[in-house]
Design a protein around this nucleic acid. Structure first.
Lengths: 344, 344
DNA sequence: TTGTAAGCGTTATCAC
DNA sequence: GTGATAACGCTTACAA
């Protein structure tokens, strides 16, 4: 017979299981968390009782008692941006078979919203926290430093992370893409960028350095907008860039969506790619390899970053061997038709 | 002086705030949840104490005591599929300014995984539960029926939801798209489908009915694969379809990614679109309107569905006027160049 | 290996 | 309007 406390929720509790199995509640608790702590015999009885009652542990009570939620909080600036969707896929993949949950927060590229979410998430005492980028506000950084759980900054590379970091250098990525365009023979190489979040800014910085090194930089070549990126926007920005620089002969795009939009617009205007216009994207979504013509891009380790970030958290939680605090997963320039100016 | 219980976590608690403000803990609790329950004077003292201590309520304790977590759980089959990313954007949008959190679960299109996640999420006693589709397993349905919170099934339309439902009919969408192709003058209309989850199956059923009505159906026209959808896959499936039906003159694609892949492959093979091959996609991503040629598609209310689903949950929680349990947001056929066979 | 007691931080209940 | 007290369901600390 079940104790009918006034506030009883009706669902079976660990006490119910204990009573049915003829043991103490704490024994059920142990059997559930680490079966090796309980004798085989009791374990069986407990398992039977759990099954019979359809018992599910109350995660809130568990978190309250242990001051530790079985949750890894993940903060991203966007969910519709495929980059972060891929990243999160990697996060889930690394967590398969693990009792930990993922709690996703969407900062909408707002440092203030990020600050709010970090505070809120830390209030849940998560087992780990993964945040995007390295451009947190001072208040956020302070909270992260005293988070009391493993913290991983992702999608960038830097030397001094709050705790751990995994990603790659957007600056180097932008530089490599631009150098490639220079080496391919283009001379009026534009930069097209949307949203212009910190990572885009660093790609732009890399672009600029590469052009300056080649003596080809001109501010008029840069066309950016705070508007969120999209395929249609790519076409619009190309038009703007061509208006500013009629002799434009190539564009390095902030991301692949813009690059695709540029390609469509070029086709519409009957501009020959890559002869009259070279196009280079960023991220290397799988469509880049099958577009017509195939589009050059910079392959970025999105999925791998999510996977690795979770591994870093898990390893820390398990107290295993300390691995590198900073991991550079690199990027890879994928040269394809759209920048092969001299090809047949 | 703070009570230093052995297990004290170090963070300020509601009791600390109460002591500093010179009131009882329950008064602080009231002031935080509904200031109108507390006198102006005490309210001010409490606010000051909260600010001074940097107090953040412990959500776990709150959920335990009230048997209610301020969380809406959302289950989707995929996060990389832009359809669900857009849907989730709508969810977040509808929740702005609300203290409720979102907890996302990814079922990876697996009914078993869905079952596990539903059980786990309900163990948190969420304020609401949103699940994708209407094809839950029997065990899942049973749990949903006794969830003890508002439940919304989304992305489909049906008459008998577990609780509430918002979406549109994929069957009708597939039928409308196919009828359009028939009316546009195409005669050997293929179906290309990837993943083939329940919603894709219903689109296929609509396609089939439309072709049967026109006396044009032939099983050889249907090419599907359980492989996840992608742009490259669209090209491959087109090749397969043309191998089975050399006279193929149009394709209705499961989604826009495949349609784009089909377009690229057609361009590669120098097949003229729309004259020699009509292409129709599904979802109407924004790239469809700027592709070259522009691609016909079926616009689906992804964002709106997420937004509405949350509104339905919120309205139920607030005990407001009961709105319709089933909401059909419909779809819209967007006819563009890729199916204008007779255009100049 | 198992159990007892106390506590995690908050809110429901009932009294004033 | 405010407060004392007892839950909420689980785990830590300590004992046997």
């Amino acid at each position: 017979m079940k104790k009918t406390g006034r506030r009883n929720s009706g669902r079976p509790t660990i006490t119910d299981v204990a009573r049915l199995a003829g043991v103490a509640a704490i024994t059920v608790s142990r059997a559930l968390r680490d079966p090796s702590l309980v004798s085989v015999e009791l374990r069986r009885q407990i398992e039977a009782a759990v099954a019979e009652l359809g018992y599910e542990p109350n995660v809130n009570a568990r978190a309250l008692a242990s001051s530790r939620a079985d949750v890894i909080a993940v903060l991203v600036p966007s969910l519709t941006n495929i980059v972060f969707a891929d990243f999160i896929s990697g996060v889930y993949k690394a967590l398969r078979g693990n009792p930990l949950q993922i709690q996703i927060g969407n900062t909408h590229y707002s440092p203030r919203e990020e600050e709010r979410l970090v505070a809120m998430f830390l209030g849940q005492r998560p087992s780990g926290l993964i945040v995007s980028g390295i451009d947190q506000s001072k208040a956020t950084l302070k909270r992260l430093q005293t988070a009391g759980c493993p913290v991983v900054q992702v999608m960038e590379y830097a030397d001094e992370p709050v705790d751990m970091l995994v990603g790659f250098s957007h600056f180097e990525g932008g530089k490599a893409a631009t150098r490639h365009l220079v080496e391919a023979g283009y001379r009026r190489i534009g930069f097209i960028g949307a949203r212009m979040d910190p990572r885009s800014q660093r790609r732009l910085a890399g672009y600029r350095l590469a052009l300056e090194e080649a003596g080809l930089f001109d501010p008029a070549l840069v066309v950016t907008t705070p508007t969120p990126s999209s395929v249609p926007l790519g076409g619009e920005l190309l038009c703007q860039a061509m208006a500013k620089t009629p002799a434009l002969d190539a564009v390095f795009c902030n991301n692949d969506d813009l690059a695709l939009g540029v390609l469509f617009e070029a086709q519409r205007q009957a501009i020959r790619v890559p002869q009259a216009l070279g196009i280079c994207g960023f991220n290397d979504l799988d469509l880049m390899g099958v577009a017509h013509p195939r589009l050059t891009s910079v392959r970025t380790p999105r999925f791998e970053t999510g996977h690795r970030a979770v591994q870093m958290v898990l390893r820390r939680l398990q107290g295993g061997a300390e691995e590198a605090r900073c991991v550079d997963l690199g990027f890879q320039l994928q040269v394809r038709d759209s920048t092969m100016r001299d090809a047949p």
